[in-house]
Amino acid sequence: MTHWIDLKSSADCIQDGMTIAIGGMTLYRRPVAWTQALLRRASRPRDLTLLAFTAGYECDLLVGAGVIRTIRSCYFGLEAFGLAPMFTHKAAHGELRILEETETSLVLGLRAAISGVPFMPSQAWIGTDLPRLRPDVQTVTDPYTGQTLTAFPAIPVDVAVIHALAADSAGNVLINTNLGIDPELVYAADRVIVTVERVVEKLEKSVDGLLIPGAGVDMIAIAPNGAAPTSCYPDYPLRGSILLDYIEACNRGDFEKYLIDFLDEPR
């Protein structure tokens, strides 16, 4: 059953040490309003593991605010805007635990978790330094040919947070076609929180979007403009000036001040 919930309550269910997965792609359809709600909590969670196929602005805010201990992502940056400043700073100072990931390690790790098997075999990483940086990732021998393969371990996800275009009264949810790994996050996560731009009576099938059945959605919170300054196609494009201002504030050493202003912003 889907619970209709306010944004604040949806953020209250995050507990210390959880793995939270952030939906969307780099600067597209990220749950920024939800990030704000999480960081507005009087008692912020600690030692979270952040899973994001690609991590951007909202993930950098979480890292800067100090709630993240471990990063699992294959790209952490702001595309044409540049490096993600707080991730870059903290990683260079040894303040983050980075589990070096790639597209394949994340995808097969999630697929293993979804399928209920301990690992998925792959040709990826063989010969590179990745196995040295990830000593927890083992190899297996193909019983048929004797070939060495990488055994990507299942990635458990406690909570996935996805921003969507709309929900309907039955709890079905519509996302646009920049899917990222959102469908897999719905399958893999123990709990799925979706924030939506709006609620409609009944969602129709669309070639420009993907319907996620309400059966896979645990909580829905309404958050108009909830992805800004990242985009929410076709509703709004990214807001470049906000991203530029963020980078400049961090480069001046003003992250804390930026965060206070960000948390004060009405949405």
Partner: peptide
């Protein structure tokens, strides 16, 4: 653990180059 400069990451490069 303490690189001179951390880069965004490798995407799928370690996956396909082998």
């Amino acid at each position: 653990q303490r690189p001179r400069m951390r880069l965004p990451g490798t995407g799928g490069i370690p996956d396909v180059t082998p």
